[in-house]
Design a protein around this nucleic acid. Structure first.
Length: 526
RNA sequence: GCGUCCUUAGCUCAGUUGGAUAGAGCAAUGCCCUUCUAAGGCAUCGGUCAGAGGUUCGAAUCCUCUAGGGCGUACCA
């Protein structure tokens, strides 16, 4: 809708015009402060310019009024235009909120190590990434959702050790010496039981079998993670394992050319010239690759798959990595600007007002699955999607569990359900409703209709700015308008029933579409 | 120290490429169910937009500095 209006303005005024929502809806549907920026150039007062521009519209079928007020130009859309747009949205819901965006995107997110179930911190990245995915796909982008599995390196060794020690301690009753760092938790006890059943007691004692057990366990854990993600409606298209990439190592190193060098038996990447503090070790002097090595081959593999754009969603604690990986991408001969990294800031937890430290190794994690059980997937998704991801979040675990009817998700669901109830109660057929023209609407009805028709702009803006919280914000505002309208306006049995139901159908469409993009199903009944 | 993200109502957060009187939820107080679902509506209370300069017709928004906080600054992931 905004695009149509802005194209029209460009045509009429021969220039690009900023359109905004007026603070007060009584001013009109859209407003532009263009006269202010032209004032200097034209050496006239903003008021005079606005007046001239407003006059140049004359009578236009799209607008019922174009007025200049205090230098602003306020535009009011005609009911004919709104009705036509609403009818089109209802007959072609897919086209309504969609756009013909082109381009392929590789979106990598979550990528949590397969050493334990997802915790509440991972949930934020998962929700953010999946929401972005849904928005982007809806707009027409061809997006692949990918999970990078760190199934090599120290944490896998540690997993094998932890698994054996847990089994010997909990199952065999042995006294064991715990190393400084190790994983623990219920899932490890369960896994060690499985090891005992499948491989026998000896497997828990034989240190030479740690690697084998670790590789077996990480598949089991990855399955747990996938199930956790499924529970919150998050699905991946592809999984890429780190271990599978190392066959490519020599070829990738050669491709990096003098981006890498060897010193004191170690291989370094020359990242210091590209925004990094200093060069980083990629291969240790004992020949073991560092974490960065895996990322280098992985990104080479990503770029060889030829996407138009790459988005990585990382936890904010990885931000120091951006410069290194981008440096590697440049050395590999690719355009590092195609790689976009979105950081999802830390989620810090309080318990009864005191900081609550999570540690996977100490077993003090808040597992995502537990929270989902407490508050439900919808509420969890809505809560994380509502916060912009570059602010550190802090919340109390008890508060989180408490969220029930005070959660805004119910407010929006209720709005949708109320409309469905009215539609069901009405004796009018959908055909009659759809065929009715929207005219003679009250100011409130007009405001509600206009708000509902804004959905496409919100989706576009939320995705392109990567600010997914704009969608929940919008849905809350739309639901609020609906609730007020519902309270103020009698619908069933009035002369206006058909046209008001048509208006409400548009509202329901926007609510349902918006919710589905958040991975939440709209409810017809509460 | 350096890098980076942040600081808006008692709390959790919005605030459109700089625009008209800075918003919502929760909490608090008081109203509204003989009326399509009260998981709702209305009203009241609540703000030096961390602070100071600067740019601009116009700043919560852009620039500089200061204070406070998170994260990073590993041959851990």
């Amino acid at each position: 809708m905004k695009q149509r209006v802005s194209a029209l303005l460009r045509e009429t005024l021969q220039r690009d015009v900023a359109l905004e929502k007026p603070k007060d809806r009584s001013f009109g549907h859209f407003a532009t402060p263009i006269a202010f920026s032209l004032a200097k150039e034209l050496r006239k007062s903003p008021m005079a310019i606005a007046q001239e521009l407003a006059d140049s519209f004359g009578e236009h079928p799209h607008f019922s009024a174009v007025e200049s007020v205090a230098g602003y130009i306020n535009l009011r859309l005609s009911e004919a235009f709104l009705d036509e747009y609403a009818s089109w949205a209802l007959t072609d819901p897919k086209a309504f909120a969609s756009a013909q965006k082109n381009g392929s995107i590789l979106l990598e997110f979550v990528s949590a190590n397969p050493t334990g179930p997802l915790h509440i911190g991972h949930a934020r990245g998962a929700v953010y990434g999946d929401t972005l995915l849904r928005l982007g796909r809806h707009l027409g982008y061809d997006i692949t959702a990918e999970y990078y599995v760190n199934d090599a390196g120290n944490q896998i060794d540690l997993l094998g050790t932890s698994l054996q020690l847990e089994g010997r301690s909990a199952l065999l009753g042995e006294t064991v010496e715990w190393p400084e760092k190790y994983y623990r938790g219920e899932y490890l006890t369960d896994l060690s039981k499985e090891v005992q059943a499948v491989f026998g007691d000896e497997a828990l004692r034989d240190e030479s079998r740690q690697k084998e057990l670790a590789l077996w366990a990480k598949d089991k854990i990855l399955a747990l993670i996938v199930a956790d993600l499924k529970a919150i409606n998050v699905h991946f298209d592809t999984f890429v394992g780190e271990a599978s990439l190392y066959d490519e190592w020599d070829r990738v190193m050669a491709k990096m050319g003098n981006g890498v060098y060897v010193s004191e038996g170690k291989t370094f990447i020359r990242s210091s010239g590209l925004g990094d503090d200093h060069d980083r070790v990629v291969v240790r002097d004992d020949g073991r690759p560092t974490y960065l090595a895996g990322d280098i081959i992985y990104h080479n593999q990503k770029f060889e798959r030829c996407y138009d754009h790459y988005i990585n969603i990382w936890g904010a604690d990885h931000h120091g990595y951006i410069a290194r990986v981008k440096a590697a991408v440049s050395f590999l001969g690719y355009d590092a600007q195609k790689l976009e990294v979105q950081l999802s800031q830390m989620v810090s937890l309080l318990k009864d007002g005191e900081p609550f430290k999570m540690s996977k190794r100490a077993g003090t994690v808040i597992q995502m699955g537990d929270v989902v059980e407490e508050i439900g997937a919808d509420a969890l998704r809505f809560m994380f999607a509502s916060k912009k991801c570059d602010t550190a979040l802090e919340f109390d675990i008890e508060e989180l569990k408490k969220q029930d009817s005070s959660n805004p998700i119910y407010y929006i669901q209720y709005a949708h359900a109320r409309i469905q109830t009215l539609i069901a109660k009405s004796e009018l057929t959908l055909e009659t409703i759809m065929a009715t023209k929207l005219h003679g609407l009250s100011a409130d009805a007009d405001g509600l209709l206009f708000e509902a028709l804004l959905l496409p702009e919100i989706i576009d803006d939320a995705f392109e700015s990567r600010q997914v919280q704009k969608l929940p914000d919008y849905l809350k505002a739309l639901a609020a308008k609906l609730h007020k309208f519902y309270y103020d306006t009698r619908i069933i049995g009035t002369d206006d029933e058909a046209k008001l139901l048509k208006l409400l159908l548009v509202v329901a469409l926007s609510l349902k579409t918006g919710l589905s993009l958040l991975g939440i199903d709209a409810k017809d009944r509460m």
